[in-house]
Every structure is written in C-alpha cells, then in structure tokens.
Amino acid sequence: MTTPTEPPVPPDRPSTARPGRKLGPIAPFVSSAHRAWLDPIRETYLASGLTLSDLSTRVRFAKSKISELLRGVGLYPRWEIVYLLATELGMPNWPLYRLWCQAAYEAQKSSEWVDNCTERTPILTATHTAPPLDHRAFRELVETDYLFFAQAFLDDDQRDAAIDDTFDILWLSWDDALASQDTRGYAWNVLRATVMARAPHRDGWPELGSAAFDTAALQSLTDPADRLNQIAESLQLFTAMSRLPTRQLDVMVLRRLCGRPPETVSALLGVPLAAVRSDERHATRFLESVLCPPPPTEGITP
C-alpha cells in the first residue's frame, strides 16, 4: 500500500454564533451505535448557525422533539425526522440511514418497525448517493491498514462492519475531518472509537486474545506442546499490551501484529515519526518489565 502522506486540503469554516438557549449534551445512556450518527448530525447543526426554532419551522416538528433527538433522550427517533433534519442540514442520507438502522436494531426495534419508518420516506437523494471524491480516495489509501488494525480486536464480521461504520461516520463528518488539524489523525480517532466500541473488554481493557492464533510464531510451530506454550505466551503478551496507553497500544498493534513500518504508522496516526519510535520504545520497556521482571534482590546479611 502507498503510505499516506498529505491529508486533503481543509476548507475554510466560518465561525457561527447562535442566539437562544444552548443545546444540552448527549445523554450518558446513549449507545455507541446511536452516537455514531448522532454526533455528526449534532456537529453539523452546531456549525450551521441555525437555531432549534429555525429547524422547527423548516421541518415542521416541535422544537422540543428536535432538542430531544439531538440529545438522544426520549424514544428512539423515527427515520422521517432524522431524514428531514439531515436534508435541511445538507447531510448525505445513505451513511446516515445505515447507521440509523444499526442503532435501531440495537435499541430492540423490529424489522417491521424499521420498514414502517422508511416506507414513505426516501432513503437516498440524487445528490447524496456517493461520498465525495477525496473521501473515496482517502478510503482507498488507508482501508487495508484499517482492516488489519480492526482484525486484531474483532472477528471477520465485526471487523467489516466496524470499517463500514468508520467510513460512514467519516462521510457524515467529512467537512469536520477536513477542517481538523490533521485529517489522518481525525480519521484514526473515528476508526479507533468504532473498533473499541465493538471489541470485547475485560476489566475495562480491550481484549487482544484472538490475535494470538494468527501470529507468525504460532503458525511456524507443528508440535502441539510447542503450540500450546506459544499460545500461552502470546495471550500473556496481548494481555499486557492491552494495558498500554492508547497511542502506544495503537503503535504496537500496527508495528508488531500488523507488521507495518514506522513510516506507515506515522502516516496512519497523523503523528511525527519520532513520536511513533518513542511510543514503541516506551511500550517495549513496559512489556519487558511485565513479562520479564528482574529477579528479586536478596537481602544483605549483616
């Protein structure tokens, strides 16, 4: 794969001021699947300069209902109001619909409910059936490496779903990604959040155990006893790795499990090459201290 070097050029984003009461935060009980589409629609609304009263007048829904939707409170919203808000805010419908459906099923909504919500409301519009050209180019550039990273934490089906969700979220928030300090870092944060929301956790840490069965060291062994010993060592290593700080974990997964060179890791994370090498050194020292601690010092007999 070609190493990504320069992110797309960000557009100018005018600052906006909004009269009236400030929109409250997203409710803490909102699921990650629900937040996947709610965060971008909130950010687009906040950047639009419109007020809740403006949206209420344009989409003909009560201001209180729109406020509830944008805070994730009340009943899970029907597609009709989400579609109308997205259209008014100029957001693409297809990635929003995909993410809305997924969150609806996680909210225990039936297929009949989803179908009833969409039978009278279009899902696609002629101007929003494909992502922007630079978004598509970016996906082609990084998707393989994103897949390898997700594979370290998820099974195949979960991995593919996480990658699709990542690029749908990026499609919805592409203007914000371009306006960020570094598009690559912005996109990596979206990928990481999406993968970690799906990854199994133990004691609050993401599990890397399944990756033990795909290591080169294990594949080279034929003796069953040697393979069992290698699995045990790998599981111990991956348990220790999961305790690393966020960026050190990402660097180690990309370097040691995915086999990516430091230059590619730097480009994917949007951080300097020196920072990648420093993170790898610190992570290696930590893992060595956990897996190979120094022998205890014997007391000195007077």
Rank of each mutant, 00 (worst) to 15 (best):
E6W: 01
E6G: 01
P7G: 02
P8W: 11
P10R: 04
P11A: 12
R13A: 11
P14H: 14
A17D: 08
G20K: 12
L23Q: 06
G24Q: 13
F29Y: 12
S31C: 12
S31Q: 08
E43G: 06
L50I: 08
L50K: 15
T51F: 14
S53Q: 13
L55P: 03
L55R: 02
T57N: 08
R58W: 03
V59R: 05
F61L: 08
F61Q: 11
S64W: 09
S64M: 11
I66L: 12
Y76S: 12
P77Q: 07
W79H: 01
I81P: 08
V82T: 13
L85W: 06
G90T: 14
P95G: 00
R98L: 04
L99R: 06
W100K: 06
Q102Y: 10
Y105Q: 07
S110N: 03
C117S: 14
T118E: 05
T118V: 14
E119G: 00
T121W: 03
P122N: 06
L124N: 00
T125S: 10
A126T: 13
A126V: 14
A126M: 10
H128W: 15
H128T: 15
A130Q: 07
P131W: 03
L133S: 15
D134G: 00
A137G: 05
A137P: 04
F138V: 12
F138Q: 13
Y146G: 04
A150N: 01
Q151H: 15
A152S: 13
F153H: 07
F153Q: 05
D157G: 04
Q158I: 01
D160L: 14
I163C: 01
F167Y: 11
D168R: 00
W171L: 02
S173W: 01
D176M: 14
L178C: 11
R184Q: 03
A187L: 11
W188P: 06
N189F: 01
R192Y: 08
M196F: 09
A197T: 07
R198N: 05
R198V: 03
H201V: 00
R202N: 02
W205T: 02
W205L: 13
W205Q: 08
E207S: 05
A211T: 04
F213H: 04
A217N: 04
T222D: 11
D223N: 12
P224T: 06
P224N: 09
D226S: 11
L228G: 04
A232C: 10
A232T: 15
E233Y: 03
S234D: 09
S234H: 01
A240E: 15
A240R: 12
R243I: 02
L244I: 08
R247W: 04
R247G: 07
R247C: 04
R247Y: 06
D250M: 07
V251F: 10
R256M: 09
R256H: 10
R256Y: 04
G259P: 10
R260Y: 02
P261D: 07
P262Q: 14
E263N: 02
E263K: 04
E263I: 02
A267T: 01
L268T: 12
L269I: 10
V271R: 09
V271M: 13
P272Y: 13
A275H: 10
V276Y: 09
S278D: 12
H282S: 06
A283S: 01
T284Y: 00
R285C: 02
R285L: 06
E288A: 09
S289V: 09
V290E: 01
C292H: 11
P293Y: 07
P295N: 12
T297C: 12
I300A: 05
T301I: 13
P302T: 07
P302V: 08
